[in-house]
Design a protein around this nucleic acid. Sequence first.
DNA 1: TAGTGGTCTAGACCACCCT
DNA 2: GGGTGGTCTAGACCACTAC
Lengths: 243, 243
Amino acid sequence: MTIQRALPLADQVTAELRARIRDRRYPPGSRLPSESELAKELGVSRTTIRTVLSRFASEGLILRKQGDGTYINERLDEVDTHYGGLWDFSRLIEASGYAPSIRTISLEQRLASAEERERLALDADTSVVVLERLFSADGRPAIYTINVIPGALLQVDPSALNGQRPIHDILQTCCNERIAYVTSTIEAATVDKSIAKRFGGQNINPILLLNETFYNDRHSPIFLGTSFYNFRVVKLNLVRAWG
Amino acid sequence: MTIQRALPLADQVTAELRARIRDRRYPPGSRLPSESELAKELGVSRTTIRTVLSRFASEGLILRKQGDGTYINERLDEVDTHYGGLWDFSRLIEASGYAPSIRTISLEQRLASAEERERLALDADTSVVVLERLFSADGRPAIYTINVIPGALLQVDPSALNGQRPIHDILQTCCNERIAYVTSTIEAATVDKSIAKRFGGQNINPILLLNETFYNDRHSPIFLGTSFYNFRVVKLNLVRAWG
DNA sequence: TAGTGGTCTAGACCACCCT
DNA sequence: GGGTGGTCTAGACCACTAC
């Protein structure tokens, strides 16, 4: 039998309370039980409860008032598709209330461009695997992404890549690399005809352009992401708690 | 004599360690003293140290490796202008290495539009104060913002508003309202001639458009912000730690 | 094996809000 | 005054890494 490591208590409490918020057992605007009561009910320390509530507060799910209590945000629906979803476009689309689907447009291996060598710290004459995918929401094209992965990193045949899985999952499975952090730049752009075609030929200009570099915990850039984001289909929302 | 409330220990430790990182006493890539050593040196508990290090980790400043140690991010310079700066455009520009300046373009009082009444939950025939400002970086126009504040909220004459101060500061001073959270939507847009003129007539299309609603802790929308963001002058960066 | 960060606890005291 | 969230501590045990 495989030993099943128990999840951290804080994660279990997070899941439980998130469920209660999602299905309105704690309705928007209502006051939560006090931290001490929650701790007693769930059998954990108040510190653990506070860890979880701090997460929710930073997401804007709850508001805490000293001397009064903790309240569910009345505008839950505007708040639950936040930028954290940028990790995983499928989940972002899902959280926005649409059915996500992914189509692999192309998968090829070629020499790295000068810019790619620069950003990925590669030598000349190095090959990269380029994966182009289209994320749709209820069948409407929403996000077109291009991922550039150094060929030397891949431990399997490129054709074995499963485009249906999140990119961080692919990296872990096929490259044994874990992502530690990401830097992104958000710009506005005009798409050319070849990319416009991927969106069904509609006029989608201007569009959001996300430029991302993913690093491992040794500070090495692992791979690049370029995403054309049609904000008219799935909104790009941020929610931030003050302070 | 005024009693000076001591800052929370975690904030003081944050300031001290941030200074050490900024002036390279802990150089990029180096290993920090262990949590226990830092706790002992600074005279606080390890829990307090961990609170601070968690902040830094979420900003991407440091990387923590279980069983090994805590390391300063080698790419500090790419990391220190993050979206947290969106709170305050002046500080964002400063953090990007430019000298910020603010010019008040106009300040007027007029009836609220239908959309403004909707978003601010106002009755018909209500007036709003509209403040338009231009943020420049080293003299180059970077961000054009329009703030819409309900006239009923203002406790001073609109002409007394000081456009040089951050908007949250203005709100606190002139309206006695504190911001609890913000929702933002990021889009791409094409600016019309009147706005292009504010940017000196250069071709700045397409541009980023930030649409923000600010709430107080009673969940009431306090005011609106619309910002045209020329990402060619000051980049809009996000940094996110994994997990 | 020693030392590190990760998790969790029980409890203290404070600042604040409500009644 | 009584209850709430905010801050902070001392200490336990675990998982992991480097040696």
